[in-house]
Design a protein around this nucleic acid. Structure first.
Lengths: 224, 224
DNA sequence: ACATATTGACTGGCAGTCAGTCAATAGAGT
DNA sequence: ACTCTATTGACTGACTGCCAGTCAATATGT
């Protein structure tokens, strides 16, 4: 109807944000492109003027998200005053243990109806984190705190294990199971990176250390 | 048209098999329920008489598959003449290294268009293998070959790492990267299970040890 | 006048539904 | 034993509603 022309970048961002909000509340699969454009107040065709497909907008959102998270981890890795071992501890506490807190906005990814999207985001996360974490491990090896012949592969294995195994959208553990698994992560890291026994011991488990479990966003059901 | 009544079990199997064949050739997402019933020679409603949804038939196929694979691993685990360490070696060579060979029929799962299905099959595999592998590790610990405080968690971590990381539908590594990663699996296992150095050394890599890479089934494209 | 942004009706395809048909069979009445 | 009939279970296929993606037309800014 009333036709409004905007700066393309602005329009694109509008669409991106609307899509993100809808994916969060309804889930990816249950969000129709027609929903998105309705919320932006724009015609269906406009969507396809800016994005090749529904999947493409999802990919764009994932990239944004992964990039945002990379900043935290990069800040730790680039701190030249920290030994590798200390960096690794910080990455675990500041990044992995916080996934449940910081990812509220991305929690919709963990819903089953978003499997492809979700998987892609985990894969991208692994690929983005690997080089940075590898350099941390290599530093630790040089400093004698770690011992491994394949730092990169150890990191990849660790990332896949942590990200997939502790993802409530993939493995729905009970709180008890989760507790045990979290206890075991310390031992796993020690062994994987060849650190001294107790180096990554989980001393006390703060309640919000428990990642995502039970914080799963309730997705609006189809029949309210 | 010509109405044919059959033994329900037989009918159900017919539908199951037709679905499997179609999922293999076209992929899950691209197979319509109408395709399936056309191939069985039955009406659309008949499908929904036997299965609640398209996803349900997929789950049924996954269960069948996982169950079939469990037999191999159970046979190894139940062999009371074998020490735990030897069992683990066999599981790796007979089960994981063969995934590429034996799973031809299930390769369609590794296609991107089947993400949810694929993920479910991996999760079910992890959950099915875990108890059996855990008892193997525990046996190894009793025999002094392994050393770990959390056998179950070590097994889960290992399974997730191997199954997800080496799945070409999830992580599309180049042959070179894959080679390096396979070399590293030995070290990873030693550390994870606390075995002696070299216990799981990959001595020679047979060409077909490379799991699934490049054996990815070519899915019929939509526009031939 | 030209490029660029925007429109919205339209297409094709698909999952799932539903009211009803048909065949076999169990059982009641004889 | 033998029909007749009620009931059940298997099966049908047209239909609904939804949705991703297309496109020719059209408005807007420069």
């Amino acid at each position: 109807m009333a036709r409004v022309t905007k700066n393309p970048e602005e329009r694109k961002t509008e669409i991106l944000l609307a899509a993100e909000r809808l994916f969060q509340s309804k889930g990816y699969e249950r969000t129709a492109v027609s929903d998105i454009v309705k919320h932006v107040g724009v015609a269906q065709g406009t969507f396809y003027y800016y994005f090749k497909s529904k999947e493409e907008i999802a990919d764009a959102l994932i990239d944004r998200m992964v990039e945002r998270q990379m900043e935290i981890i990069r800040r730790i890795a680039d701190d030249s005053s920290l030994p590798g071992y200390e960096k690794m501890v910080r990455v675990v506490t500041d990044v992995f243990m916080r996934r449940g807190e910081n990812l509220d906005a991305e929690e919709y990814l963990h819903h089953e109806s978003n499997a492809l999207l979700h998987q892609k985001s985990l894969v991208k996360t692994v690929q983005a984190y690997t080089p940075v974490l590898t350099s941390i491990v290599e530093q630790g090896v040089r400093e004698g705190a770690f011992r491994t012949e394949h730092p990169r592969e150890a990191v990849e294995f660790f990332l896949v294990g942590v990200l997939f195994l502790f993802d409530p959208g993939i493995f729905p553990w009970t709180p008890d199971e989760l507790e045990t698994k979290l206890q075991a992560v310390g031992e796993t890291m020690e062994k994987l990176f060849g650190a001294d026994k107790g180096a990554f011991a989980v001393k006390r488990l703060s309640p919000n250390a428990i990642p995502l479990l039970d914080r799963r966003k309730r997705i609006e059901s189809p029949n309210p």
